[in-house]
């Protein structure tokens, strides 16, 4: 085995995994099957439940199609995406540097742990009434709720990320007299990225959920408000159409995140396609 890896490494040719076409087809088929099953269940529920509690899939999708032709629909989607993106941006710009800075110092990590654990267990919805009093049902109000809810996983993961400043790579850098600035930009940041990305992934999902929840509970403009408005006007197909839209948004955001992570962490063990070992 060793002689094998020796020879492949010196010629530079690594064994390439054979693409498994049949496996992929099977996976697509089972995925499609599960979707069909879910739609059938939905249809069954809509047929058996009392009228006006749940529209059928066809009715909902048709309504979604109608809505997609209106400007109000896209305004709501745009508003929700704007709040979500602004929230995620603030959480990242504040949470990552603050977390890394705290994690850099052992004392700072230990002394802040209790406060962060306390703050992150407060449900963001619990402070919603207060924020609503201050800002009213506005973009700013939802943004505050989103940031207060989503910043913790990002910040705490960044603290963990910085703890690997004590790793063997830090020792190696010290022994080769790598200047601190160079170490931070070329060794520390790339090394902390996997941890930071884990926090960002959790934070991204929380951002989207809280955006829609905040809009729904406060009446601030966006998809959440549309869901609430449809419910109040007993327009269940419209309500379900918007619920479906929020699910689609979630899928898109999550998918976008995964491809970004696959690119940024293509060197990380979780994404390695081939290895000589």
């Amino acid at each position: 085995m060793t002689s094998n890896t020796l020879s492949t490494s010196t010629t530079g040719a690594l064994p390439r995994p054979v693409p498994q076409r049949t496996g992929r087809l099977l996976r697509l088929a089972t995925q499609a099957g599960v979707i069909v099953l879910a739609l059938l269940l939905w249809w069954f529920a809509s047929a058996t439940l009392p009228e006006a509690t749940m529209p059928s899939p066809v009715e909902t999708l048709a309504r979604m199609g109608q809505l997609a032709l209106t400007g109000g629909f896209w305004d709501a989607v745009g508003q929700t995406l704007l709040t979500f993106a602004a929230g995620l941006l603030i959480c990242t710009v504040v949470g990552v540097p603050v977390g890394l800075a705290i994690g850099w110092s052992r004392i700072a990590t230990q002394s802040t742990r209790l406060v962060f654990d306390f703050l992150r267990t407060i449900p963001p919805i619990a402070i919603l009434p207060l924020v609503l009093l201050i800002y009213g049902p506005t973009f700013e109000m939802v943004l505050v709720v989103v940031v207060l809810g989503a910043i913790w996983p990002i910040l705490i993961q960044s603290v963990y990320a910085a703890r690997q400043g004590e790793s063997l790579l830090a020792e190696m850098s010290a022994s080769f007299r790598v200047p601190r600035r160079w170490f931070v930009t070329h060794v520390f940041f790339p090394g902390s990225l996997p941890f930071v990305m884990t926090g960002l992934r959790v934070g991204t999902t929380i951002c989207l959920l809280l955006t829609i929840t905040g809009e729904l509970l406060s009446g601030a403009p966006g998809i959440g408000f549309q869901i609430q408005d449809a419910q109040l006007s007993l327009d269940t197909p419209r309500m379900y159409a918007y619920v479906l839209v929020s699910a689609v948004l979630g899928l898109l955001v999550n998918g976008g995140f995964w491809s970004a992570q696959r690119y940024l962490l293509r060197w990380h063990a979780s994404n390695r396609k081939e290895s000589a070992r």
């Binding site: 080769f176 200047p179 070329h186 060794v187 990380h268």
Partner: peptide, 20 residues
């Protein structure tokens, strides 16, 4: 653990030189 997994072999080897 003493090599940087995100950097190519060459970049690993040249890190002490480039940093200095």
């Amino acid at each position: 653990r003493s090599l940087m997994p995100w950097a190519s072999v060459l970049h690993n080897v040249t890190l002490p030189l480039r940093a200095n």
